[in-house]
Design a protein around this nucleic acid. Structure first.
Lengths: 211, 211
DNA sequence: GTAAGTTTCAAACGGGCGTTTAGCAGGAAA
DNA sequence: TTTCCTGCTAAACGCCCGTTTGAAACTTAC
């Protein structure tokens, strides 16, 4: 009992702090003191800082990937060919399904996903690739029929352009929203941003097919 | 003479190493030993590691921003209203103008720009904002007439979506190209990627105007 | 109640970091 | 020749890091 509590307190604190400052910039001492546990607890329960980072992602990605898979299968049972808009919708509604609409946890997670790409944590990218590579391939395989006429190179690059748009927006979410608040004078609702973002990605992706 | 040589050797080494590994992950000892100068030289010539990071950006951004401004003015003399495609073209041709097409230096710089956004270097973002904020505003001011019908919020978000697409692609340039080589079996030319990227961004941006 | 097994804890270890210091080399000015 | 200044350098300083250790505290089982 006491163990589980400690493990989860560490994961909770690490998730928030990593998202705020990045991995290298967050020390184990910061995490453990925020979690109210002893410094040595991380190495006792997780083995190392690297393993802790991976554990944070597993706790988040495992249920999300399952949900995406579930929605994908359900949608495929209804219609044979999925559109780009369908595929993007699966992503956003999966995140919404697992955590509330625009919850703090969801934005934390978005930041973390962005950091996984941009920070120099080779072990993490390798780990994520091995654990979730198949799920990603499965999702991406639906894009090919959704964008007839696109070559393999087109598909690859446009997928990653879209991915980049999303990840950049995610990982700078708070900063961007603050800037736009200064700019336009009002706070943009999350739903507005998400719908704009998916529309932007869809437009770019469609561009891959008819050229 | 000896001074100038030392300063530039440090900048050269720092530029490459920062781009490869990030700022926090590159120690002054690594930089100075790669540059063949004494460890203390960085603090003697630049004052601190932070100032060195800023100096790397100044050496790169100052001439680039001048070139963008020049091309923008020249284009504006030819036609009164610039299109989205014009504006994107100015960016790519400015980079090409200052450094060769697809030179190592240009890809280093792209990585650095990405890192400036994604790594936690508050001092750097502040510095860049203060030094180049006006130039950015000037450039962005041309977007409004190029996208009639878009609201201020539309403009803000779609500009940053496009920025995100470019920065993500830039900062993961080598990794993405290696992945696509494994994927499709052949090495994608830089020109292909750049033209695809700008087409993706243009499609997304136009989407802001007619909705 | 005692033994075995887990979990927690204070303390320390070794190492890498950015920065500082005090002094050296060598050309310019007097 | 002496003085001054700039560029350079070896060495050290203090700090924070992830990790390890050995013992204390607690839980479980007999």
């Amino acid at each position: 009992m006491a163990q589980k509590e400690t493990v989860e307190r560490i994961l909770d604190a690490a998730e928030v702090l990593f998202a705020e400052r990045g991995f290298a910039e967050t020390s184990l001492r910061t995490i453990t003191s925020a979690a109210g546990v002893n410094l040595a607890a991380v190495n006792y329960h997780f083995g190392s800082k690297k393993s802790l980072i991976q554990a944070v992602f597993v706790r988040f990605l495992d249920p999300l990937v399952d949900e995406i898979e579930r929605q994908l299968n359900q949608l495929q049972a209804e219609k044979e060919r999925l559109t780009v808009e369908d595929l993007l919708q699966v992503l956003t509604s999966s995140v919404y399904e697992i955590h509330g609409r625009g919850s703090n946890r969801a934005t934390s997670f978005m930041r973390l996903l962005g950091l996984a790409y941009t920070q120099s944590q080779a072990h993490l990218r390798k780990f994520i690739g091995e654990r979730y590579g198949n799920a990603f391939q499965h999702y991406a395989s639906h894009l090919k029929p959704a964008l007839p006429g696109a070559t393999a190179a087109d598909l690859f690059w446009h997928t990653h352009f879209a991915l980049g748009t999303a990840i950049f927006t995610m990982s700078n979410f708070d900063a961007l929203r603050a800037m736009s608040e200064n700019d336009t004078g009002e706070r943009t609702p999350v739903d507005f941003i998400v719908s704009r973002l998916t529309a932007f990605m869809a437009a770019g992706l469609h561009n891959a097919a008819h050229e």
